[in-house]
């Protein structure tokens, strides 16, 4: 039986590193700088987590620590047992899904309409929308408007007024405008109407920008608190961020004692913060590639 002389087989030719993929001294320096930069960004999150699992007596005696000698998840238990957190989460999730869809709908269709050249008064509408980027009516008129619309103390006040975000609408408009006009023309020749052209041709081609704008809205809704703070006084309508503020902010000076004094450890505060940021942190990386692409593409054509 003929033996295969493995050692005699010709070795695969080693690919010689060319000038473009050589890992040189400059790359090492760059790597170190970026590593430090990454650590600077990651460390606060890491520290937040470490404090959240550190018992109070250890934390206060040694607040600057890289790891805890004793791990406890008591703070997370307290957070999960706090009905305020779940109430806030419910409202925030409604805003996140309902609000984002609603905002996307209006922002995208407005952006699309303003990217088309075939209707009278487009520039007028465009300029009127642009004005809102630079001037506002003021807080009090806004308050009165919201009150007149009967939205005080309702969840709608946190959703309806934000239907169109001008900046995001401009991103969408520019993106739609950057797509070849021939697509629309050929679709029309094939018998498609405007809605079909929008839904079946332009939307599928705009996924990067939709993801970008969607992410903007989602993050905005997740972090939403201002309208809730100003217009809603009911505990049941507090967003997660408002609840977080209640937990983290400890009033001082002469407050009365309605029940037993509630004293939250630092770990409880950190656990609450961690709980509120983790969903966005998990969500973000999956959309990031669209996010960067979308921003760049939308910025090219004005």
């Amino acid at each position: 039986m003929a033996k295969t002389k493995i050692d005699k087989l010709p070795l695969a030719r080693k690919e010689r590193p060319g000038p473009s993929n050589r890992f040189g001294g400059f790359d090492v320096v760059l790597f170190i700088i970026l590593l430090i930069f990454a650590l600077l960004i990651i460390f606060p999150f890491y520290y937040l987590f470490v404090v959240s699992i550190t018992p109070q007596e250890i934390y206060v005696n040694n607040p600057l620590t890289l790891w805890t000698p004793r791990v406890t998840f008591d703070a997370y238990k307290s957070v999960f047992n706090d009905s305020r957190i779940w109430g806030g989460l419910k409202i925030t999730l409604i805003l996140l899904f309902g609000g984002t869809l609603y905002q996307m709908f209006f922002t995208v269709i407005t952006g699309y309409a303003l990217s088309r050249n075939n209707w009278v008064g487009k520039n007028f509408v465009m300029n009127m929308i642009l004005v809102t980027m630079f001037f506002g009516g003021g807080l009090i008129p806004y308050y009165i408007l919201i009150k007149t619309l009967g939205m005080i103390n309702t969840i709608w006040v946190m959703i309806i007024p934000g239907a169109i975000d001008t900046f995001n609408m401009l991103l969408m408009r520019n993106y739609f405008a950057s797509l070849p006009k021939e697509l629309e023309e050929s679709a029309k020749i094939d018998g498609a109407n405007d809605v079909q052209i929008f839904v079946k041709i332009f939307l599928p081609l705009s996924l990067p920008m939709l993801a970008t704008v969607g992410l903007f809205f989602a993050v905005g809704n997740w972090n939403s608190w201002y309208n809730g703070m100003l217009f809603n006084s009911s505990q049941n309508l507090k967003t997660l961020q408002q609840v977080l503020q209640d937990i983290v902010y400890t009033p001082s000076s002469g407050i009365p004692n309605p029940g037993k004094i509630r004293i939250d450890d630092e770990s409880m505060k950190m656990a609450a913060i961690f709980f509120t940021i983790i969903p966005m942190m998990l969500f973000y990386p999956f959309l990031q590639r669209y996010f960067v692409k979308g921003i760049v593409v939308g910025a090219i054509k004005g």
Binding site: F135, G137, G138, I144, L145
Partner: peptide
Amino acid sequence: TAISSISLTG
């Protein structure tokens, strides 16, 4: 005009 009218709402 729009801004003034909105502002005067208050």
